[in-house]
């Protein structure tokens, strides 16, 4: 049963990811990517990372993808700015990516894999909170500064400058 759920989510994630790569219009790609993220959130929940599953939906499928859709809608699709694919690149990209994927697969599967335990018994969310706010407190605070810098950077970049000429 678990395996069936895994294959369902995995197939959904792979298919929607392929749609993102091959569909011509960016809007459809973005909508497909939301489904892909939702499928990955399902896999997180299946791996007893329930908190991450919730965060995946709220932050990724919610906030980040809304930002993407906003920008896509903001840019005028009528102006032919949405350039498509380059068939010539297919010839270079395919063998490169297949080889790369094979190497990645070998590396991941040859890595040591210890016996599986279960985080769920100890209450995974409590464990995450303890690790995040005790062991990783400094990185956690630093990411706050990172977010602040990113927000300021985005504002400064898109600010309208009165003296600017095209």
């Amino acid at each position: 049963m678990e395996l069936v759920v895994f294959y369902l989510f995995a197939a959904l994630a792979v298919v929607t990811a392929l749609v993102v790569v091959f569909v011509q219009r960016a809007v459809y790609g973005a909508l497909s990517l939301i489904v892909c993220f939702a499928a990955i959130a399902g896999l997180f929940v299946q791996m007893e990372a329930k908190f991450l599953g919730a965060i995946q939906i709220i932050v990724y499928a919610g906030a980040i993808m809304v930002l993407f859709l906003f920008v896509i809608m903001l840019l005028d699709p009528q102006k032919e700015i949405f350039v498509g694919r380059k068939p010539a690149l297919l010839i270079y990209a395919s063998p490169l990516v297949i080889f790369f994927g094979y190497v990645l697969l070998r590396a991941l599967l040859d890595a040591p894999q210890p016996a599986q335990g279960s985080l769920a018994e100890r209450g995974a969310i409590r464990e995450v909170a303890h690790a995040l706010f005790q062991d990783y407190l400094l990185p956690f605070e630093l990411t706050g500064i990172l977010i602040l810098v990113a927000v300021l950077g985005a504002m400064v970049l898109t600010k309208r400058r009165p003296a600017e000429t095209e």
Binding site: V21, A26, G29, A30, G84, L89, Y92, A93, I98
Partner: peptide, 15 residues
């Protein structure tokens, strides 16, 4: 691999 393929294959910055 799919993601890296898309980065090489597509020329649209958003995609």
């Amino acid at each position: 691999a799919i993601g890296s393929f898309g980065v090489i294959f597509r020329r649209n910055a958003i995609t």
